[in-house]
Design a protein around this nucleic acid. Structure first.
Lengths: 106, 106
DNA sequence: GTAATAGTTTATAAATTAGTGAACTATTAA
DNA sequence: TTAATAGTTCACTAATTTATAAACTATTAC
């Protein structure tokens, strides 16, 4: 199946959204670009860990990176990423609302 | 950090998109609802495997399920899922275009 | 009631992903 | 040219996810 390959590629891009730290980075980069150490200052944790997560997202075209002097600046590859992320956040919010609705009927 | 819990929940919903079979199912359910065996007929594979993937997506509010007689009908929980998925597909397509662009410059 | 259909659940093994720390590379400054 | 800064890469372990097959549940038909 030729289509199965597309599904794999598509899933790989989506998979790159599926980690708390990566969501936090996308959130941070909504409206600005930041360099590695600025991101690290906000997210915390080990630099090696952050670096690997940024690398995953950059390879999947979620982020783009620009080297400037000694700093690496990261930004969203396009606004589509922010939009997709926002839609999925709404799916989460709807889910939580449904759960609250169920509890209130008890 | 209170926010970290939100990032985890948000990432968990996104993670539910990150599998080829799950992308294929979302694709299939764009405009219609289908019962389990209809989905299985298209995707192929083991019923137990499909069932587990549908269960993951249903728990994360990506899909909703309706039992009718002996059939279980699945559909997208909302159009937001289809939209987010389409945006991520565009991120993939942009990425492929970039790669093609690079090759053409060689 | 017995069998068939439609699917879910469970257990387990295999594969993938994530976190850690040390080593490494590149740029700038003294 | 030596040191400091900024980050990446690598090796390894731990945790999570996935696929498979068998067992199980619920509904319908005979």
């Amino acid at each position: 199946m030729i289509n199965k390959k597309i599904f794999k590629l598509h899933a790989d891009v989506c998979k790159a959204l599926g980690h708390p730290l990566r969501i936090e980075v996308i959130d941070l980069l909504q409206d600005k670009e930041l360099c590695f150490s600025d991101i690290l200052a906000v997210t915390g944790g080990l630099k090696s860990n952050l670096s690997q997560h940024l690398s995953v997202m950059t390879k999947k075209n979620i982020l783009k990176m620009k080297r400037e002097g000694q700093c690496n600046y990261y930004s969203l590859s396009s606004d589509k990423v922010a939009q997709a992320c926002q839609l999925m956040r709404e799916v989460l919010i709807d889910s939580i609302k449904n759960h609250i609705g169920l509890i209130e009927k008890m």
